[in-house]
């Protein structure tokens, strides 16, 4: 994100998906440090660590072991200190029910991961430009 240089938190268990995000950010010249956690639980314990700088945005996968994205959001949105950090869900699922459930939890965005890498880059570019323009609390 061009305005802040705060870290970006990626919660993603899949190695290649994580690589895809990293590569896409590199391709569109996003220089924010990227912290990757493999599941919701790890992400929560990281976020609650007082020593770290809070991320400016969280990219969240839904289908993860130990604590999935939905469970993570349930806890996250109850936490007064965290709940204002924007969460963009990056997922494979195009199920209507999943979308409804996720938006009910107050996420900032919902992106389906395209199979085509180039289209994925476009998605990433959109996220970057949106959160570059958007005001933050």
């Amino acid at each position: 994100m061009r305005i802040t240089n705060k870290p970006i938190l990626l919660v993603e268990d899949d190695e290649v998906d994580a690589m895809t995000v990293i590569r896409a950010f590199k391709d569109i010249n996003v220089t924010n440090p990227l912290i990757r956690k493999e599941n919701g639980e790890d992400a929560l314990s990281y976020l609650r660590d007082v020593h770290i700088e809070k991320p400016c945005i969280i990219l969240l996968d839904l289908n993860m072991p130990i604590m999935n994205g939905v469970e993570f959001l349930h806890v996250f949105k109850q936490d007064e200190l965290l709940k204002r950090i924007p969460v963009v869900v990056l997922t494979t699922s195009e199920e209507q029910q999943d979308k409804v459930e996720i938006f009910n939890l107050g996420v900032a965005g919902y992106m389906a991961k395209p199979v085509d890498y180039m289209r994925f880059v476009e998605v990433m570019r959109s996220i970057d430009s949106y959160w570059t323009i958007s005001e933050m609390p």
Partner: peptide, 8 residues
């Protein structure tokens, strides 16, 4: 997921 990985 693996399909996407293969694709990427």
């Amino acid at each position: 997921a693996p399909l996407r990985a293969i694709s990427a």
